[in-house]
């Protein structure tokens, strides 16, 4: 149910995002979802890739600070109000979202969104209870 997200510390310097992405390309790792959080002096790149365990090793070897965080990928109906319906469930059940972002690909007529919850297990249980479709690690790999 949970999938692995890799977060990477980036200084606000020209070319840093390129460095990281080209490292992934060289190692035949494909990015499925991507998000950058930026501050005045640094950024955090968050990615979901097809081979997270290989990716983390590649980063470590290159002295890039990276860590794995469990996140949940949710299928969202691609229609007006589709995301709002899911957010309503989460709000009603008092689940806190730290941040979220979209996948590059779509799964048929559904959009894929990555959610980072402070309590990932509680969130997963609630999503399941409400029959909200969660994307598995396996299907992320196969996208």
């Amino acid at each position: 149910m949970k999938i692995k997200q890799i977060s990477i510390f980036l200084e606000n310097r020209k070319g840093r995002l390129y460095d990281v992405c080209s490292l992934l390309g060289k190692n035949d790792i494909n990015i499925r979802a991507l998000n950058v959080a930026e501050t005045e002096s640094f950024g955090i790149l968050r990615i979901v890739v097809n081979k997270p365990d290989v990716a983390i090793k590649v980063f470590k070897d290159a002295d890039i600070v990276a860590k794995i965080t469990d996140v949940i990928a949710i299928e969202v109906d691609d229609r007006p109000g589709g995301l709002a319906d899911i957010l309503k469930v989460l709000a009603d059940e008092d689940v806190n979202i730290e941040y979220m972002y979209g996948f590059v690909e779509k799964s048929s007529d559904r959009a894929l969104m990555v959610f980072r919850f402070d309590d990932v297990d509680k969130a997963a249980a609630i999503l399941k209870k409400h029959n909200i479709r969660i994307v598995t690690e396996q299907s992320v790999r196969e996208l």
């Binding site: 997200q5 977060s7 510390f9 959080a37 501050t39 640094f42 955090i44 968050r46 600070v65 990276a66 860590k67 965080t69 730290e98 941040y99 980072r116």
Partner: peptide, 10 residues
């Protein structure tokens, strides 16, 4: 920054 200090949250 080292991996111990690092977080995915700003």
């Amino acid at each position: 920054v080292n991996s111990k200090m690092f977080s995915d949250e700003v």
